[in-house]
Amino acid sequence: MEQGVVFAGFGGQGILLAGKILARAGMEHGLHVSWLPSYGPEMRGGTANCTVVLSDKPIGAPIVDTPWALVAMNAPSLDRFEPQLAPGGAAVINSSLVKRDLERTDITGIQVPVTTLAHNLDMPRASNMVALGALIRFLDAVPQEAVVQALSREMEERGRESLIEGNRKALELGYEEAGKVLDGS
C-alpha cells in the first residue's frame, strides 16, 4: 500500500498544517510517511500545496506522479491537480469556493462546502480540518481516531490547547459530510 495525497489551496487556508496532521497521524499509526511542501517565493493569498505519502514500506520518491486523493480548497487547485489523480481516487472539493464539478468520471468527487461549514461553527480558520475530516472518510489508511489524536498533540505542542475542541468538531463535521456523499448516509 502506498498512497499519495495532495492538499492545495490559497496560502493561509491551513493547507500545510492539514497535510502535516495527516502525516503525523500516519506515523503514529505505524506507517511510513513523508510530507513535502511547495516552498516557492510564496505569500499569503498565493497558492500553496503539499504532498503527503502514506506507505507500509519505506518511501522512495516523496513526489507523486498520480495522487490517490486531492483536497482542493480553491478552483485553481482543482484545475491543476484533477488531471493527475489516479483512476479510482477522489477529490475533496471545497464547494463554497469551487463552482464546478469534476471533469473526469473515473474519480470520486466529494463536494463539501468547507469554508461555509467552518464559518457556521464559528471557526473560520478550521476549514482545513473540515476538509481533512472529509478526506479521511475516503482514505482508509489512517483511522479517524489517529487523526484526532495527531490534531490534539499538534495543538498542544503549539500551546493552542483551547483550539483542540473546535478543530475536532470541524474534523468530525467534515467526516460526516463526506459520508453523505460517499455512502449516502
Partner: peptide, 10 residues
C-alpha cells in the same frame, strides 16, 4: 538539497 531541507519525515 532544498527538498530534503523542507520535507518532513519521522
Amino acid at each position: 538539497d532544498g527538498m530534503l531541507g523542507q520535507m518532513m519525515e519521522p
